[in-house]
Design a protein around this nucleic acid. Structure first.
Lengths: 192, 192
DNA sequence: ACCTTGTTAGTTAATGCTCACTAACTATAT
DNA sequence: ATATAGTTAGTGAGCATTAACTAACAAGGT
């Protein structure tokens, strides 16, 4: 995962091409044109198109595990951990709106078996990490335990995904972070 | 929207082709092969590929408006209306799993401007319909009003979308309707 | 009863475009 | 001298779509 400057440029361009007009818009020609080099030059940096897509997914995988295993989150309460994770997601999306359009667009990779397996793995590992936090919070009495942790997981992350999708479809025309904070305030009322 | 038997067959096959391997899998050749006729024969029934996609979206548009304007839902309480809508969605997905993979996969249509506009319209009209129900319920005291209706909308429908997506990605390996009912029971606790 | 005409739903063959990818070559910087 | 990062030109495959033709059937006039 040590990408050269050119490789990183190709990945960035690829993400924005997909975000803009879907996976069909990701062609070697479009990548090359956007960067301003010829098509074969792309193959100096990636073996083939598949490797480009795989590298995009690799970068997604990093995001969540990074946050949940960071030092600064260690001593927080369960609710604060969830808040940290949610707001971190919103901030990342605002920083890179293209990412937001891809992050929850699992369909984009379902064309290829290897890629869709990877997508599924990423989803599962994120889910497992959050489950731990939720059930720990329930045991400590910080989170209500009259609703099972699986349902709570869906109730916390479903709305986040929907909000980010609405933001993407709206062309980023509202303040995602502010709306995200409002949503979290509402969710907090519900969790206690 | 009066489709001949052959047109309906093409639509059904198209939906399952997309659901199976993404929009890239929807080619005239694949449609023709699945049905067992030649490629040009498809053009006897649809002007072009765009019209096929448009017809698929048309059928999606019908689904939600149908439910929300049906007679049987008229005299129900707000909560029961929402329950009816949610469970109806789950049942439709179980009946036609291919539909579920497409229903919330807006990315599939973002390649084309006209199609993505249509997708956005469908989303908005569904959201507007549900907003009415939620704020009516708040005014009647059936739904808590310490959380604004926009956040409540996201808290109700975000989890449903996530659940259906998980079901699709899992290869329909759990009982969607049962899980959906459980989720709704949890959501009901939250809404009151 | 039987030709004429038109429609419907299919066929084979072909067109022009775009795709991912490769071969062969070249400039440049170390 | 050699590795790096680019170029032009081309290949073969797959794509949506069209042209031209045909078999099956139905209605109307004689």
């Amino acid at each position: 995962m040590d990408l050269t400057a050119r490789q990183q440029e190709i990945i960035n361009v690829s993400v924005s091409l997909i975000a803009d007009k879907g996976i069909q818009n990701l062609t070697i020609k479009n990548i090359a044109q956007t960067i301003g080099i010829s098509e074969p030059a792309i193959y100096r940096h990636f073996k083939n198109k598949f490797e480009i897509l795989m590298t995009i997914l690799d970068s997604f995988e990093l995001i969540a595990t990074d946050v949940l295993n960071s030092e600064e989150i260690k001593d927080l309460s369960s609710l604060d951990k969830i808040e940290f994770f949610l707001l971190d997601r919103y901030r990342r999306c605002v920083e890179n709106p293209n990412l937001s359009k891809l992050m929850f667009a699992e369909e984009n990779f379902q064309d290829d078996e290897q890629l869709s397996k990877k997508v599924l793995n990423i989803m599962h590992s994120h889910k497992d990490e959050m489950h731990k936090v939720i059930s720990a919070g329930q045991k400590l009495g910080e989170i209500r335990d009259d609703i099972d942790s699986i349902a709570l997981f869906r109730i916390i992350f479903g709305p986040m995904r929907l909000l980010i999708k609405q933001w993407g479809l709206s062309g980023c025309r509202f303040d995602l972070l502010e709306e995200g904070k409002k949503l979290w305030e509402a969710e907090k009322k519900i969790l206690k």
